[in-house]
Nucleic acid binder design. Structure first.
Lengths: 221, 221
DNA sequence: TATTATTTTTAGACTTGTCTAAAAATTTAT
DNA sequence: ATAAATTTTTAGACAAGTCTAAAAATAATA
């Protein structure tokens, strides 16, 4: 069994590993968890003894297979609860994170399996992130940032990179939601802003926005 | 804000106060929480400083109005989650307690209000216990133990006193569920066992069982 | 009422998870 | 390649919540 704190460290390392290949640094973990490097070192030693991370002094950590399984299970719970909150309890997608951070630590295999079934075995959370299956495996979907598409290309909006409240609320306001088709009408060389078609609406969005939206590229137009 | 541990103490005191009138003793709390009297004394001091209990050395504790509100809110959450688990996730009534013990500590007013709405504002949990409203008030229903009824009297089964897995599973096996009408056909003087009619079935139950079942007494038969 | 038994509190210690400040190792830059 | 900057670790401290063992207060009994 793992404590709440241990689970949070494992989850942080899990997310950081997806970005970086190779070991995750002490400082990176400290920043992610808003804690101090010395605290991270202490916890890493504990996790290392529990054989969920591989640790060499000054060389950062990597998750073991066991560690990855535990972390994925926490992520799975987090994302399933997010779906529950949005689909069943009418939370908006920018309100779910803090509550899911708490719910992800509830320990009950039956609870999470039944919740999964109750929700109809969803594959993605409200932000478009894939939900790990019972064994911790993720279905990987080829995705690209909207900012990398060229003029006249189009794709389906499948997720966000930044999921801060501000950004999500901005998207709501503009009518940009998961599953909608987006077509690049024009690209401005000056500031890399885009003119896009979403549904039947024409919008102008900055490069910053376009660099935070994931698109499933479409074959053909 | 209250810690998980503080909430558990407040809940324990809340439940003990409903039984005893007057102060709740250190030992009673220790037994309820399966901890040591010395730990209870420590925590009581903390709760006293936070003004959720009144404490005089050697004289036990009582909840303040604030304390009662906090405790009732935890109980409210516990019971709403129990309803959720049974109604939506197909838990049986003997499986819900441990999970609800965890879920009751999740902090989010919106979560619990929306859950309440989602469940259709239930008034009772799966064991027949009333669910406190937002302000912590309980709807009090006159109830009597089945063992106190006389021959030919009847009533609706509305709750259990003992809610251990064993007892609940026993009731399931016998087909005794909340809402069913029970009529006393006969009472055995020798061992106080009862012959009852439940639905269209005749059953013989011991006094121990009858002393753990609550009945809403009916006017007339 | 004096003595015994029980309950409650205190004192000191331990664990978990955190912190600050300083030392050690590693990396970067001159 | 040596010095400077950065990262990481160690050492020691602290708060929360718990424990054991012993002392103090209260309750029960003779």
């Amino acid at each position: 069994m793992f404590t709440l704190s241990e689970e949070n460290y494992l989850k942080a390392i899990y997310h950081l590993e997806l970005g970086n290949d190779g070991g995750v640094s002490t400082n990176a973990i400290a920043e992610k968890l808003a804690t101090k490097a010395s605290s991270v070192t202490d916890m890493i030693k504990k996790l290392s003894e529990k054989e969920v991370v591989l640790y060499k002094k000054y060389k950062g950590v990597t998750l073991t297979v066991l560690g990855k399984t535990v972390a994925a299970s926490v992520v799975r719970k987090h994302r399933l609860w997010e779906v529950f909150l949005v689909e069943k309890l009418n939370f908006s997608w920018d309100e779910v994170h803090d509550v899911a951070e708490q719910l992800e630590h509830i320990k009950s295999a039956k609870l999470i399996n039944q919740l999964d079934r109750f929700l109809g075995f969803p594959s993605h959370d409200p932000h478009g992130d894939a939900i790990p299956d019972k064994d911790g495996n993720l279905k990987i979907v080829a995705k690209s940032l909207l900012s990398t598409l060229s003029k006249n290309e189009s794709g389906i909006c499948i997720g966000v990179d930044d999921s801060s409240s501000e950004f999500l609320q901005f998207l709501d306001k503009k009518g940009i939601t998961l599953g909608k088709k987006i077509t690049i009408l024009d690209k401005e060389d000056f500031d890399d802003s885009l003119s896009i078609l979403i549904g039947d609406k024409k919008l102008s969005i900055s490069n910053k926005i376009a660099s935070n939206l994931y698109i499933r590229a479409q074959t053909g137009q």
